[in-house]
Design a binder for these strands. Structure first.
Length: 596
RNA sequence: CGGGAUGUGGCGCAGCUUGGUAGCGCACUUCGUUCGGGACGAAGGGGCCGCAGGUUCGAAUCCUGUCAUCCCGACCA
């Protein structure tokens, strides 16, 4: 392709709307244009990148016998109601674009395709003899993000590869899951990305085991916690660790301590010389559901620990099976309770022994018994300091069983960098930022049960299908590649996903000798099947060099002054291999070798 | 949804305090000189100053409303 015909429009200044490198560079280098928040036009250069990524994905999917397909994006609400996800995806902070068609039917634009594909499986897969099967597609997904940002990184319309596997038993699911794990590692490696696999929360998709693939980069939205020995890595949402040991509280019996105005752990400890690990902090929260009244939740954590909201949301959802989707869980505020807690208990002095009766019943403050949960960090304390449920007072020397029964113990604390690892207490978790580019799940039978996707096994019994699902953010992967591969001058695409492998720059388009040599090389490379650009624009050499650097073509072939002697300059932009003066033939040969 | 900021040619910005009918850099067109790291000169084209009201003889500028975009947060007393 000739650059003069490429519709290449590069910008000298960073667009004001862009915050991170990939967003800035993809806009500046003419790869994309924003149409609306989180919605981008993929310009020809970017489309080539996306096609290269897709081609690699297709090859690796073929390796694991996955079948490419294309599923509807416009999906009936009824289908989503049957899986139980319609409300969760549309109400509250739901992420699904939805509409009413002319027949007054509710429809949604697919944010994911479990429902559609499961429906299809229910229709087609009847016998264990047909299994396993794995279907995948590469197409646009729609998600009405609460806050789209960072360009391609979190868009409302984006390209995703999603695969779904169906199995007769769990062992078979595990095998495919493992095969996908391998395929994913090869895909990211072939795309030239450094990626790590981490344990992950499975979120709204549900299911048991799940693993994310993170491209490490400063701009990553996720925090990864990993052990230096490489044996453990997890998303912070999911990470587990050993908390620092607590300082034992040396007290006899239970006493009351006057703590006027001390409503935070810090103030309390500063005033009385306690260590935060000797305290239990109590969080009162309110969980709102799609299909049930709100419910109050009381969480006990050791005073120095932080709540992990993802773990909490999972724990609450699991304990309220009939409540429908968990829409929101947040602090229970005085505003929710007209007049605050009964008996005048101030929020800053709540203790684990707060009685249900002190919470006024009602839609705003929660119906039914308070759901009580304790993190093991709090549960393991022999004796502790906590709120007294009275203004300006705390209890010292409280013990589980004496003060109140120990609530159900669940892992609710947020693991922190520096925490000791479970698998080896001598290893300490280290933090890194990552961009989630892939996520694989063992879904189990959640969707097949909900949508009655059953097959007949060898014994003639009807069983729900075992399912797995496997996603890659294709457009996000392109942005992640830019985050990982750029310098002050622009993008440095890995060769495998670069829009073109080579750009031939004619230093002076007025020199017929240079033009002739460049045209010859352009023809030769093109005929050899190499993706080559010819910068034939009547621009000054400096402009063309700047543009070539900015758009990040891995190899630059400069045809300039020494063209008359048949010599050219080969510049390795991606590999950092510098520049070399070569005869045109040598240069050609090298580039052809790369391709082979 | 809450908080903050910003809306002025395609992009980046000034002008607004103190009202007088719009300017700079880049980009674009033409001509000339230049020609290996975003050239120089000359001449051009392109703007409902986000939108709607209001104040005023007169509004990009002041007031009110509204919309949009971007950033922070969706956090534990």
């Amino acid at each position: 392709m000739r650059v003069s015909r490429l519709m290449l429009v590069t910008l000298r200044d960073d667009p004001a709307e862009a915050e991170i490198t990939s967003h800035k560079l993809l806009l500046r280098a003419g790869y994309m244009r924003r149409l609306a928040p989180g919605i981008f036009a993929y310009l020809p250069l970017l489309w080539r990148v996306l096609q290269k990524i897709s081609a690699i994905i297709r090859e690796e999917m073929a390796e694991v016998d996955a079948l490419e397909t294309l599923l509807p994006q416009l999906q009936p609400a009824d289908l989503w109601r049957r899986s139980g996800r319609w409300d969760g995806y549309t109400a509250g902070e739901g992420i699904m674009f939805h509409l009413i068609d002319r027949q007054e039917r509710a429809m949604g634009l697919g944010p994911t395709h479990e429902e559609v594909v499961t429906e299809l499986a229910a229709d087609l897969l009847r016998s264990y003899r047909q299994l396993p099967v794995c279907l995948y597609q590469i197409q646009t997904k729609f998600r009405d993000e609460i806050r789209p940002r960072f360009g391609l990184m979190r868009g409302r319309e984006f390209i995703m590869k999603d695969a779904y596997s169906f199995h007769a038993d769990e062992a078979c699911l595990r095998r495919t899951y493992a095969a996908m794990d391998g395929a994913y590692r090869r895909i990211f490696e072939r795309c030239g990305l450094r990626a790590v696999a981490v344990e992950a929360d499975s979120g709204a998709i549900g299911g048991s085991a799940s693993q994310e693939f993170m491209v490490t980069a400063e701009a990553g939205e996720d925090l990864i916690l990993a052990s230096p020995d490489g044996r453990y890595a997890a998303n912070q949402e999911r990470a587990v660790s050993l908390p620092p040991p607590a300082v034992p509280l040396e007290v006899e019996g239970l006493r009351t301590l006057a703590t006027p105005g001390q409503t935070s752990i810090e103030e309390l400890c500063a005033a009385h010389g306690f260590d935060p690990t000797q305290t239990v902090k109590v969080l009162l929260l309110l969980a709102r559901f799609a299909a049930a009244p709100a419910r109050a939740v009381l969480v006990c954590l050791r005073g120095d620990q932080q709540l992990n909201e993802v773990k909490l949301a999972n724990a609450v959802t699991a304990r309220c099976p009939d409540a429908g989707a968990l829409l929101e869980i947040g602090p229970l505020l005085p505003d929710h309770l007209a007049g605050g807690l009964a008996g005048g208990v101030p929020f800053g002095s709540v203790g684990p022994h707060l009685e249900d009766a002190l919470l006024p019943k009602g839609e705003a403050s929660g119906a039914g018994p308070v759901l009580r949960l304790a993190d093991s960090s709090a549960a393991e304390l022999e004796a502790f300091v906590c709120g007294a449920n009275r203004e300006g007072e705390h209890l010292v020397g409280a013990r589980w069983g004496e003060l109140c029964p120990l609530p159900e113990v669940v892992d609710l604390r947020a693991a922190q960098p520096g925490d000791r690892c479970l698998h080896d207490p001598f290893q300490r978790l280290e933090a890194a930022r990552g961009i989630e580019v892939g996520h694989i799940f063992q879904l189990g039978r959640k969707y097949s049960e909900a949508l009655e996707a059953r097959f007949t096994d060898e014994t003639g019994r009807e069983e729900p299908l075992w399912m797995g699902c496997y996603g890659i953010g294709v457009s996000r992967l392109a942005a992640a590649a830019v985050e990982q591969h750029h310098d002050a001058d622009g993008i440095r695409w890995p060769l495998a996903i670069a829009p073109y492998a080579v750009i031939i720059v004619i230093a002076s388009s007025q020199d017929p000798v240079q033009v002739a040599l460049a045209e010859r090389l352009y023809g030769d490379l093109g005929r050899a099947g190499i993706d080559v650009l010819l910068d034939d624009r009547p621009e000054r050499a400096g402009v063309k060099f700047k543009d070539a650097d900015l758009i990040g073509i891995p190899w630059r072939l400069v045809v300039g002054r020494s063209a008359a002697e048949g010599r050219v300059e080969l510049v390795d932009r991606s590999g950092g291999g510098g520049r070399q003066d070569l005869s045109a033939e040598e240069a050609l040969e090298r580039l052809l070798r790369l391709h082979a």
